[in-house]
Every structure is written in structure tokens, then in C-alpha cells.
Design a protein around this nucleic acid. Sequence first.
DNA 1: AACCAATATGAATTAAATTCAAATCTATCA
DNA 2: TGATAGATTTGAATTTAATTCATATTGGTT
Lengths: 307, 307
Amino acid sequence: MLEIRHLRSLKAIAETGKLGLAAERVFLTQSALSHQIRAIEQHYDITLFKRGNQGLRFTPAGQRLLELANVLLPQLEKAERDLIRMKSDQSGELRIVLECHTCFDWLTPVMDAFRRAWPEVEIDLVAGFHSDPWHLINEGKADVVIGGLPGDGFEKREPLSHIPLFKFEIMGVLPVDHALKNQARLNAEDFSQKTLITYPVPEERIDLIRQILKPAHIEFTRRTAELTIAIMQLVASRRGLAALPSWGIQSYVEHNYVLAKPIGSKGLWSKLYAIGSEDMMTKPYAKDLARIVRDVCADKLKGIKLL
Amino acid sequence: MLEIRHLRSLKAIAETGKLGLAAERVFLTQSALSHQIRAIEQHYDITLFKRGNQGLRFTPAGQRLLELANVLLPQLEKAERDLIRMKSDQSGELRIVLECHTCFDWLTPVMDAFRRAWPEVEIDLVAGFHSDPWHLINEGKADVVIGGLPGDGFEKREPLSHIPLFKFEIMGVLPVDHALKNQARLNAEDFSQKTLITYPVPEERIDLIRQILKPAHIEFTRRTAELTIAIMQLVASRRGLAALPSWGIQSYVEHNYVLAKPIGSKGLWSKLYAIGSEDMMTKPYAKDLARIVRDVCADKLKGIKLL
DNA sequence: AACCAATATGAATTAAATTCAAATCTATCA
DNA sequence: TGATAGATTTGAATTTAATTCATATTGGTT
């Protein structure tokens, strides 16, 4: 009666707190999840969740099953990796380049998990900043880029393959006493003649500029800082505005150090992929890297949506 | 893709060595199992069994999945047993007896709140008057007494357990024009040769008599009435005195219908407990009943002290 | 080569899960 | 107190997946 699929659903519900969001995560409808959990509740004749208009909260019984999921699913994944190893040797190397600065936040736990899962694979982070990280793959200097899809390069390149990871929202960051503090969302004009504080990367690599400000011909000043906390300090002290992933600024917002607002009418969302040569991305351990990223981030990063 | 059901099938195959026999064990046909294992083999693209006319033998990959089954299934069963235990913790019945008449005032909101919190517990009030309510627990006719601790009964009883609720003050009630209206507090002698109006219960169940009047050998007349309002009317019309919980007479005092005075130098306080068998009082819903009583009464009854 | 005792296969059937569309619930706000 | 927004629930229709049935095939043994 209880099946692995139900455990996956429980985990997603725990991560998102809402049936609708959990449903996206497991690629089902919200209704399907509702039917699933009701079937389990009826089967065991016990309620697993307290329902409210804020979503679901686990009852002790629900927590017990969640705990089961948290124990069983990793064991299942381990067995599946073992099966792959039995098919063929899986040693190799995996040199990762990050397109975006903020991804460092979660890469460490990902690499830890990966090393535990694939001890025979040498995983490394390619250090330094690279203006065209995708090119490093063709040059043979990296194996996987974690970032957005490359823009259409005019040069001929070895065709790349990609695995979707997740998308996240880029939020506008304001000082708490900013004039726009009561406005629900930010628009392109709101950045006009303002200072925009960013990581030190080219303009075309900053989504806000490329997708919003440039098309609207907004004029602004740029100022850069290396670290997220430095950007936060500059914003808090009213030296300018910033645009950062929702997960990276969550704790600053919670402590009311700065304000965060969605940008544009639908919000500014950025998509992340694991990108590599076709050869590389068909390797089981490269696919598993993507799975681990999705897993770790689904767990650690609030507000992301799995692709 | 791989589901619990497949693990059960693998286990049955290991136990019987033959698809046909294994199929009986999991209440499926041989064909169904054949389809199942073929689906798994195709999914992981690996052979799980060597087939012969003696039955099936596990390959290393098959053994790996069997090992997974042997690890996962017991964990699942343990979780299921835990759920059953949790269910028994949240459903049952709770037959309440009140030792004191006045407690009816607040029991209704308590029962309403309880029913909302524990829909699977049948809560009921044991009707009628009982001279020894605690004994009803040993007789299996009630689950919880709300009242004072039982006096040391000489008979052997199943040991009872209790949870403290609150204490409240029993006030002497006088007509507004009584001779003692200017006296701050009443003493035992003040009841001498007077009529005491009480609920119709035995003397030893009336705290004023048991704790104050009897020890001081005061002589008095008793008269009984069923309802609090009837007692108030009798007192107001100078037919006698009464002694009632401060909360029960509050509104009469506020409307200057009667006077209330503390009794004795420290006041006469009575303590209330939820009392039941040890088994009963360890159940989560019994503990929660006590919590709800304390909560509701702390809110509704002025002048009580939580124990 | 024939036979036995298994498993495999494919189409039909049955059962289960999922979706769709609408209803319902429940805090919160005016 | 009623309206509303944001969630879940519900039941019927649909789709998908699992199972059965009937039969074929396989591998080992004589």
C-alpha cells in the first residue's frame, strides 16, 4: 500500500509546506497529492497533516512517515548507484565551473554528498572567474558548467548537452527605509538613475541588466562588491540597490536588515542547468551530480522550483 | 520506478526460488511477477536473475536489490507498527465524572474544545450523582474524575494517578443586609446555629463542613438546593448562608445580590485534579484534557490559581 | 528428440493513479 | 459579520499502469 512514490511526496511536502508547491516538485498536480495523502491516511486510519490556509503541518504520525522517507530514500539511491557501478567502471573526473557567484553557498554540501556517493570520481571546482565558462568545456579545461544556458555563440562549438536543475527568483534588494518600501514590486524605472550594486562580472552576465534594464534603456550607475554580505551592507547603508537570488538574502530579510521585492510583473526568474559535453552528460555520475544538486537545493533553498 | 511492492516480490522470489511459488506468496500470478522483474531489469538495464528450469537464481545485481529489500522492509514495518501505536494513543473514550456540582459551569466549553482537538476520542459525562466517584474508575464505569483527591479509602483499590488542575477559594455567602456584612471574613463560629444551604451531597463532601465546622464542633442546620441560582435566592432572602466557589457567585456579588466573604484566616481553598487509572492518565488525550481544563478555566474563572 | 518444469510474452482486462473542474475550507481583514 | 484570498478536498472522467489469461518459449534431462 505505502509505496516509495508516497515517501517522495511526503518529502516534497515537508520541503515546501504546501501541497501545490510539493506537487510541482514531484511533477504531479496538487490534486494528485491530495488524493495520495488521503489514501495513506485512510489506509492507516490516522491523520498525517493538520490542514490550514497556510498549507500543511505534519502530525506526529506524519512526522513518523517523513522520518521513514528520510531514512529509506537515501538507502534506495545508494542501491541504485551500486547497480550502475556493477554495470561498468565509473571512475573519472568532474571539473565544475560555476557561472554565478551565489552558487558557492550550496556547492560545498553538494560536493560533499557527491564524494560520498562516487568516491572513485575526482570532483573539483575550477577556480577563478571566467567570462565565458561554457567555452572552458570545449577547451577541455572543465567538464560541467553550473549556470544558465549559453547564449547563441557565433563561433562553432562542440554541441553541449544539459540537465535542468531548478529555477529561482531574483529579488530586488532595498534598504528598509527606502522610498519604495511600501511598493509591492519593483519595475525597470525604479532603478533609473540609481546605483546598482553587483558582483564584479560583466553586465551581460547580470540578469537584471540583460533582461530588464537594457531593454528598457534605463540609465544607472554600477558599483561592485565581491561578497554577498558586502553588498548587503552597501544596500542597508543606502549606497544603492541590488538584485540577488531569493535564497541568498533570505536571512537578511528575516532579520529586517534589508527589504526584498519581486522584479517586474511576473518576477525575474533565472534557470540553472548542469551543462557539459554530450559524452560527459550521459555518464551516470554526471547525471547523478545533477540529481544531488536538485536534492540538496530542494532541501536547503527555500522558494526554488525544480525544473 | 522501483517500488516497495517490487521489493516484496524480490523477497518472495528469494524465499521460494521460483516465480510461481513466489507469486502465491504475494497473491499475484506468476505472469505478473515475470512482468514485474522484467520491468525492473529494463529500467536499470541490468540482469537480476539467471533463469533455468529449476527456477531463478540471483545475479550480483539481483542480490544487491534483495539486500535493499531486506533492509528497507523491516524499517517500513517498524514505522507501520509505530503508526498503529500512535493511533491507539489518539483514539479511545473518556468518561468524565464531576465531584462537584459547580464544575458544570465550565465543563461545557472544556468538552467543546476537547472534541475539536481529539475528534477520535469519545468524551462523555457520566450522569447522576455518585457518593464515591473515584470508585467508578475501579469499577470501569468512568475514566476520569474531576475533583479533589480521594480520601484514604480503607478498601484496596487500583492505584490512581492524578494531574493537578487548579485551586479556588470557597467563599461564605451572606445576604446583603446580614449582621456580619461589615466583617472582613467569616469564622467557624459565625455559622453556629445558622442554616447552611448546600447542594444535596453528603456532609463529608462539603469542604466547609469537613474542614471547618466539624473540627470546631459547630452546630448548624442544613438545607439543600439543586441549582446555584436557587441557593443564591435562598441566601438573598435570608433563609441561610452558603459556601461556594468564588467564580460561581461572582456575577451575583457584582450585582450586589449577595455578599461574599473569605472563610477562616487564610481563606478556604479547594484543589481540583483530574484523576484516573495510571494507564488512563498517561494517554496523551487524558493529559491534554487536563491542559484544556487549565487553559479554559484560567481564562474564564476569575481568582483561581493553577496548580 | 521428446518431455517436463519452469519462465516469457502479448493482448485483454482490471485496477489504480492522475487530472480536471468545481466545491469547500479557514484564517484574515475591513 | 461577511468578503476574500489562499489554500485543500472532492468526485467524475480520463489516463496510465499493473495484472491476468491464454499461450508460447526456454533450458535442462532422459
